[in-house]
Write a protein that binds this DNA or RNA. Structure first.
Length: 270
DNA sequence: ATGGTAGACACTCTA
């Protein structure tokens, strides 16, 4: 019995229900983690999503911004919202998932890291300071948590493209937020503190460009192809040997109406 | 160097 998980920043779940149905048609994942749902919990389209085959849902939303959700075919256990940096932002939700078969129980974390604004100086730009604080807080939390508990998966929009091949031009973007040395270092520190493995880069060679986001502001995103890999799937070391396949659903960038992010899926085998 | 688009929401914020 294999297990598959998808992460997708939908930029409003209510605008993306057709896209969600298309994603399910294409990938049929066991678990789907959404970011930027942009909806309060009592307005979350739960019934529609139940009708798509995902009756088990954990949601953490607020009015207008942010918002994360975990959708599952099988029951979720102990869903838990987390709030960071003394804010009520809805950016982190986790739950247990019974994968059946040999993978057993795993803990799935759905994360939405702050974008960080435009100016790459935390002293001048509070949004960038918040992003760095957020990554630092995650670093300490994962370090304190240690290796207790079941195998873990951490997915979401991390808003950082760490490798040179995660951006369309390392030279042009090295001072642009999402690809600055400062935040790449902060994300790498967080990865090490949680002993995480970048599942996507385990399966796609580091030399191969891989993007999951293309700005809405380009007239022809595909021709220009100025993409970045902002969406990630990390797994705990114990799951490394189970990694089977990854797919980045580039076609989704043209689904109507499109999110600026596309779904990323990883398949695990026992 | 600048502005380009999308979404929520109700004016301007966030990305």
């Amino acid at each position: 019995m294999n297990f598959s998980i998808t992460t997708w920043n939908v930029n409003s779940i209510r605008k993306r229900l057709d896209g969600l149905a298309a994603l399910i048609e294409e990938e049929n994942p066991d678990v789907i983690c959404l970011q930027e749902t942009k909806v309060q919990d009592h307005l979350f389209p739960a019934d529609e999503i139940t009708g798509m085959g995902y009756p088990h849902q954990a949601v953490l939303g607020m009015k207008g911004y942010n918002g994360v959700a975990i959708l599952s075919k099988t029951p979720l256990s102990n869903p838990e919202p987390l709030h960071w940096c003394d804010r009520e932002d809805c950016r982190h939700l986790f739950a247990g998932v019974d994968t059946g078969g040999a993978l057993g129980e795993i803990e799935v974390h759905c994360l939405y890291v702050p974008a960080g604004g435009d100016v790459a100086d935390p002293l001048k730009n509070p949004k960038f300071a918040h992003k760095l604080d957020f990554l630092d807080a995650q670093t300490h939390w994962w370090a304190a948590r240690g290796d207790r508990g079941p195998p873990r998966v951490l997915v979401g929009d991390f808003n950082v493209a760490p490798l040179m091949t995660d951006v369309w031009s390392h030279e042009r973007l090295k001072n642009t937020i999402t690809h600055t040395e400062t935040e790449i270092r902060a994300l790498e520190t967080m990865r090490q503190s949680g002993r995480w493995v970048d599942a996507v880069r385990k399966l796609i060679p580091k030399e191969t460009p891989a993007y999951t986001w293309w700005s809405y502001r380009a007239t022809d995103w595909e021709a220009v192809n100025k993409g970045r890999r902002l969406d990630h799937i990390w797994v705990s070391e114990s799951l490394t040997e189970s990694l089977m396949a990854v797919s980045i659903l580039r076609d989704a960038r043209d689904w109507q109406p499109p999110s600026d992010h596309v779904p990323v899926t990883v398949r695990l085998k026992p």
